[in-house]
């Protein structure tokens, strides 16, 4: 028995599937670009990264 790679349902729903796929890819790209813009426009970000940062400790104590 041969396996049908493409059933009728797949063919009929191709437009739906392609549309959803394109929307998802565009959404992922949009979130990535938006994140880059937000991060690059928010100024320098500093925080503790497993090592003591005397400058930040001074800021917190003030």
């Amino acid at each position: 028995m041969s396996i049908r790679v493409e059933s009728d349902m797949h063919r009929r729903r191709r437009s739906q599937n392609i549309g959803v796929a394109v929307c998802l890819v565009l959404f992922i790209c949009l979130v990535m670009v938006l994140s880059l813009v937000k991060i690059t426009n928010s100024g320098p970000v500093e925080g503790y990264d497993h090592a003591p940062r005397p400058a930040l400790a001074d800021e917190l104590s003030q």
């Binding site: 349902m9 009929r12 437009s15 739906q16 549309g19």
Partner: peptide, 8 residues
């Protein structure tokens, strides 16, 4: 009828 993307 299977909805096409344009229907949504």
């Amino acid at each position: 009828y299977d909805p096409v993307f344009g229907d949504y």
